[in-house]
Amino acid sequence: MIVDTEYGVDSRYTSKNEQENQATALMEARLKRMKNLSNEQIVKAKLMQLKLKMEEYLKKPVYDKQNYFSEFLKLYIDSIYSKRSNFAQDIDIAPVSLSQVINKHREPKEEFLMKLMIHSEKAYKNVCEFHKKTWYQVYYHEKICETMSNQEKWRPEIEKKVKLSAAI
């Protein structure tokens, strides 16, 4: 019998009982396989997860109080290093400066973003495609979202200082 394999799959469970039995067996098998994962495989999965999270964030305007750039940066460093100071050393900055960026006590300098871009190129080389501009996009996306959502805070004062003298 010739079976056409690629037209589709109906994979729905027919009962709760069937789903639970299969879930138990699957979880047992998965836990066994998970035990055999190497540290390198786990790091690769975490870096892929971070990339996908950043891509998702960039797809839409997000107006909330979360600090996405610094949260993603923390995830990035903690996926690769056991100590954040080792990352600071690898990109030749003082650990205290890194800490200030992570905790949003200071803005990252241009050089920091450049170093982060190059570091990510190296880290993602054997993991997946990672666009050079991703960290910049995340940083400026957050800035744009922040500025747009906080207009009621900054606009009244700034608007007083802006006029259009030319006739248009």
Binding site: V3, V9, S11, Y13, L26, Q49, L52
Partner: peptide
């Protein structure tokens, strides 16, 4: 992977004839 990272899993339950594929 975006949701569950290193724990991520996708499953399906095809008929026996097409499982091999």
């Amino acid at each position: 992977v975006r949701e569950y990272g290193e724990l991520a899993c996708v499953s399906l339950k095809p008929k026996i004839q097409i499982a091999k594929h």
